[in-house]
């Protein structure tokens, strides 16, 4: 396995706004090792989510470079970047983003269906749901689950492919303190179990403190 999971060099993201360039990110250089847990914190609008998106290859920087699994992302088109993520990257979002018309089990099976993964998808997804303690609620639709339960499903969906990197965007942002705590425990337990690299964007300093590395973004630059 590659020792370095993600590496960036002088990452800049600007967007045109009202006729001039707005700098979202300014010269971010960082290296994330495999299996490492990293927290990115900062105020609203500091560019945390943009950085997460660039690290995951969801978007391309205005200048600078990103290497994901040792592969430079510049020069890859959207589909090639998607192929690079497929089965190796998982996501957890603040507002869960479960598909409303799919049951918990079907939501967890989704990433398995995208890849060429063989084997019993239902069994794998069931197992993932058991791990997050939702074995009893597999047939429920998202609107029949509480916020905490929905985020558990999202965790199961993220880990079901045993990803090398998990990107989490404010995973506890929509949850009360107790539930948030439960989800945090579960997240780190799973990360440890599967030796997953964790890149976490959060406001929550306690959550950030659980990570091995902590980056602070201030007005688009690392503090």
């Amino acid at each position: 396995m590659n020792k370095i999971a993600i590496q960036t060099n002088d990452l800049v993201k600007t967007i045109p706004q009202a006729g001039r360039e707005l700098h979202i990110l300014r010269g971010i250089s960082l290296t994330i090792d495999s299996g490492e847990s990293v927290a990115i914190t900062g105020l609203s609008g500091s560019g945390k989510s943009t950085l997460l998106g660039l690290l995951a290859g969801l978007d391309l920087p205005s200048s600078g470079s990103v290497k994901l699994f040792g592969q430079p992302l510049d020069g890859l088109d959207e589909d090639q970047r998607a192929a690079l993520r497929l089965g190796r990257v998982g996501f957890v979002f603040q507002s869960f983003h479960l598909l409303e018309n799919l049951t918990a089990l079907e939501n967890v099976m989704l990433p398995l269906e995208l890849g060429t993964q063989t084997g019993d998808r239902t069994a794998l997804a069931t197992q993932a749901l058991q791990q997050v303690g939702l074995a009893e609620r597999m047939g429920h639709f998202p609107n029949q689950l509480s916020g905490g339960e929905q985020q558990r499903v999202a965790l199961a969906r993220a880990f079901v492919t045993r990803p090398q990197i998990l990107f989490a965007d404010e995973p506890t942002g929509n949850l009360d303190r107790t539930t948030g705590h439960e989800i945090t425990e579960l997240l780190f337990a799973l990360q440890e179990q599967f030796h997953t690299t964790l890149v976490l964007v959060t406001h929550d300093e306690t959550l950030a403190a659980r990570c091995q590395t902590h980056y602070r973004l201030v007005e688009g630059a690392l503090a």
């Binding site: 998607a82 497929l86 990257v89």
Partner: peptide
Amino acid sequence: VLKAMGMSR
């Protein structure tokens, strides 16, 4: 979400 997971166009 699916595209983030790696679904192609």
